[in-house]
Design a protein around this nucleic acid. Structure first.
Lengths: 127, 127
DNA sequence: TGGTTATCTAACCGCAGGGTTAATTAACCA
DNA sequence: TGGTTAATTAACCCTGCGGTTAGATAACCA
């Protein structure tokens, strides 16, 4: 796998088992045993999937006695959403310059109202 | 690689060369030669990357004499954006129920005004 | 026709991904 | 202390990925 951050994230998401694990964690933290329950797969296999997700920053793991509770970390998914967003104009016929302007305006207002999100939409991050 | 559609898309995106190719194609159709120019990589390597992108539905290839012009197909990127969107509440502190409601409302209006996009946000597509 | 250019296919190589089983570590409990 | 449960690590297998070089296709051009 390529070593860059975004590649690691996409690679981690390119497996239905791992996406199902993320979906499960959207309902709250969970132990490895609980996470492996839905799958016809050995424990070590799940452990490896979790290691991949952790390396991509998509989960974090704590310690509670003999359990290792996993927690969803969604920040990388924002990177994915932001990346895909660069291509919106190609699938969304209503996404023209005016729409884009209004959308950004509204987003900035919302972010200003609630909590200052940083908006680094740099060209560097484009690929 | 897993055989399901979304996995194929994510796997195709999990490579910086392929993402760079998509970025290039965002500026318009391009031949294989043009696409390979920025990379220190053999022609066949690029051909393979293009095959991966084509299998994932991210590009289509035509025929113009001895050239095979590649064109961006962004529909799968919409799938990616939609998938990531399910997790927005985890990274966007301003994404609460009211925000979601207003956003959907606005989107529906926009789609109604312009061209009827289908909005199947089914649970089936969640993973 | 022969030569050139663009591209793909074939065959190969090294390595990492996704899975297995067996052994190990770490914590609880009686 | 010893036994049980949770989870990881180790070692291995097979497949597929990302790259290579060499050869095959296909179209243009003179």
């Amino acid at each position: 796998m390529a070593t860059d951050r975004l590649s690691a994230i996409f690679a981690a998401l390119a497996d239905p088992t791992r996406r199902a694990i993320l979906a499960h964690l959207a309902n709250g933290a969970s132990t490895v045993k609980e996470l492996s329950a839905p799958f016809a797969m050995s424990g070590p296999a799940i452990s490896k999937h979790l290691a991949v997700l952790e390396r991509a920053g998509l989960i974090s793991r704590g310690r509670d006695a003999q359990w290792r509770p996993c927690t969803l970390r969604a920040a990388p998914l924002k990177d994915v959403a932001d990346w895909a967003e660069h291509y919106r104009r190609f699938w969304d016929p209503s996404f023209d310059r005016l729409d884009s302007y209004l959308r950004d305006l509204q987003r900035q207002e919302r972010d200003h109202d609630h909590s200052g999100q940083d908006h680094h939409d740099d060209v560097r991050d484009a690929v």
